[in-house]
Write a protein that binds this DNA or RNA. Structure first.
Lengths: 212, 212
DNA sequence: GGACAGCTCCCCCGCGCGGGGGAACCCGCT
DNA sequence: AGCGGGTTCCCCCGCGCGGGGGAGCTGTCC
């Protein structure tokens, strides 16, 4: 299995290379000290897995990961981070990273991580993901904003279509109604939610999780 | 390793039991057909892993998982779901589940999943977690939609304020600009994104993850 | 030096939107 | 029977919004 290392500190690279080199099924095929070299490195060496430091001068690991993904690379990205609950974890996940390794991980954990992401699985910190889910549910829970719960069935329908970007006339066509009726429902939605215009209603709908 | 099965469909339980029974290191120690029986079942049989269906009449898998966690159970929970991107995934994660199995998973995947969560690791769908991260990231850089990436810095600022529900006059006040200037930037945003009005621009901003 | 992009501001014009009214019908509840 | 909420439609009116122009100013790039 081919592995590439990207870290600005040569000492870290050497340590990782030593750990990986002892395994018969793993091979370090390339190294880089800067995110800007990553695309070129991966193109030349075609690694199965890239070990990528997040914090680097210049192009950081997250930007480099994003560039790799956008380029359609088949390489799996394993990000090296210091803290499991770092904000970098969320950013890197969104960028397309496949897993994380703590800098203080043991050699066994490093090897296990490489093989895990190479298999196509993801290596994530349960606590970090759970925290992520908890925050998301809290901000967009089923309970939602009490004002939205007071909407009638029809008003809810109208709000959903507003949140699709439809004009009153388009909503009327979609629901087979007169435009005046839609205007009436929209007015009710605005009054009940206490917002000024349809744009604010749409914002509320998205932020509350009423629509996605 | 002791495993408990919770699913309202006896056929599914039988299938899982058959798969698990063939392994020398695994043993099915109990079954339940309803979330309300879970606490009692786990208390009696002390399983290492609970395979839990999400969709069940009465007390569903998410509520049952929450109850287990709240009771301080040491059992690891592996949730059975139909779709990887189901909203249930987020809810179950927040409730304290340790991993997910797709209903259409192969026997090998089921066994691997059980052993994975039993080791204390989490078994998650990369796509689902990535979607979660994408929704969570607020001020991430270049957005996923190409049209949005082509916005200038100022246009991006204006779009973010539009997505807060601000009127042109309010945006002008916030950015210390003339209203005419804001109108100009808004026109650029609409032209570049190819949408008709500010409401559609806001919809695009939320759906693309440009704002949260 | 010219070309170009981005930011800033200005004009006019048409129209969809939102506020404030009202009214009819159906339904469930009392 | 009376009442209230929900759904459907109608009127007028003011205004913010979006489209169509244009213009001056800063930078950068070649």
């Amino acid at each position: 299995m081919r592995v590439a290392l990207v870290d600005d500190e040569p000492l870290i690279r050497s340590g990782l290379a030593a750990v990986i080199g002892t395994e018969p099924d793993l091979e370090v095929v390339g190294q880089a000290g800067d995110g800007s070299e990553v695309l070129d490195l991966v193109g030349r060496t075609a690694p199965h897995v890239v070990l990528m430091d997040v914090r680097m001068p210049g192009v950081d690991g997250i930007a480099a990961t994003r560039a790799l993904v956008r380029a359609g690379s088949a390489a799996r990205v394993l990000v090296l981070t210091t803290f499991a609950n770092d904000d970098h974890v969320v950013d890197a996940l969104a960028a397309g990273a496949d897993g994380f390794l703590l800098k203080r991980a043991s050699p066994e954990e490093v090897l296990h991580g490489i093989r895990t992401v190479a298999r196509g699985e993801s290596l994530l910190f349960p606590d970090a993901v759970r925290e992520l889910a908890r925050r998301h549910v809290r901000s967009a829970g089923p309970a939602g904003v009490p004002e939205l719960a007071r909407l009638t069935a029809r008003e809810g329908e109208v709000l959903r279509l507003m949140a699709d970007g439809l004009s009153n006339a388009e909503i009327a066509a979609a629901l087979v109604l007169g435009v005046e009726t839609v205007r009436s429902h929209v007015a009710s939605v605005l009054a009940k939610t206490g917002v000024r215009d349809r744009t604010q209603a749409v914002v509320l709908a998205y932020r509350s999780g009423f629509v996605r």
